[in-house]
Simulated scan of single mutants.
Amino acid sequence: MATAPTPAQAAIEAIEQAGLASWPALEEQRIAGWLLRASDGYTRRTNSANTAGAHTGQLADDLPLIERFFTQRGLPPTLRLLSTPDDLAIDRMLAQRGYRLCEDPCSVMARPLDGDAGDTPRQPGPPHRFALLPDAATWLCEFIRIKDDDGPHQKIHLAMLRALTQPAAFAVVQADDSEPQGCGLGVVSGGHLGLFDIATDSTHRRQGLGTALCQGLMAWGREQGAHTAYLQVVADNHGAVELYRRLGFEERYRYWYRTRG
């Protein structure tokens, strides 16, 4: 008989389910205990295999199917693994099979939204203006300008944003009357608000834009009925991690990728 998940395990599963729904892949397929996602190579989150009930005893049978799925689409076989006991066991087996770590681990941080979502003091200076844009295409134009990233993959990015079926906030923030200097995406699924694509202009860093952006999105999320906010950040990005800690976020778990070839 399967044992009931602990509260910590249940919280991780809830965030995982919300995250998958809030950052949609262009193609998904379930194979045994895995959810396989592909989006023409844009972001590892949507071009990797995610454990969905998989365990070590099935890996020898599952792995050829996973590898075939990705190679047929011209993508390197990539698996996303969490810092949970089951995934850690799979991670060790993949390492023995020659799968390598392909980037630094990401920290998944979360905080409750049961109080005032804007409870972090604002930095001194004029108030920042937070606004929601009407659609994904309008918002993506600002994201591309702020990130200075106008590559061909942005067409895939737009297709993924348009595939969202959950309530979404396409947000910008600015410190003056000029064009926006920061942008971010908020998506609510299953009572969880996910913060994605948080970016500020390189010439306007450390001016409180990131704080104002996250506070605005959290306030919006509470209005949508969200009780928890979460985000994903590279664990070694100390500046971003410290910002999110000041906003009340704490690490709940980590994830990383192993890939072949």
Rank of each mutant, 00 (worst) to 15 (best):
R258Q: 09
A131D: 15
G74L: 01
E27M: 04
P105L: 14
Q207P: 05
I146S: 08
V188G: 00
F130S: 04
L79C: 08
L35H: 01
L101V: 11
Q96P: 06
D149R: 15
S83V: 04
P112I: 12
K155W: 03
L94I: 12
P77H: 01
V241G: 02
E103L: 14
G194M: 13
P126D: 11
A11C: 10
E142S: 08
S39R: 00
Q96V: 08
C102K: 11
D62A: 05
D114S: 14
E250F: 11
Q58R: 11
A110L: 11
L101T: 15
P152S: 09
R30M: 09
A163N: 04
A54G: 04
L101E: 09
A21M: 08
M218A: 09
P85K: 10
R205M: 11
P112C: 09
A163Y: 08
G74P: 04
R92P: 02
I15A: 06
R30P: 04
D176G: 09
A168W: 07
N50K: 09
D61R: 13
H204N: 00
D116S: 14
R111F: 10
S178C: 06
Q166E: 13
G221K: 08
G151L: 09
E27I: 07
P7Y: 05
T228G: 02
F70A: 02
T43R: 01
L185Y: 13
C214R: 04
T3Q: 12
E179M: 12
A21D: 10
G151T: 13
H238S: 07
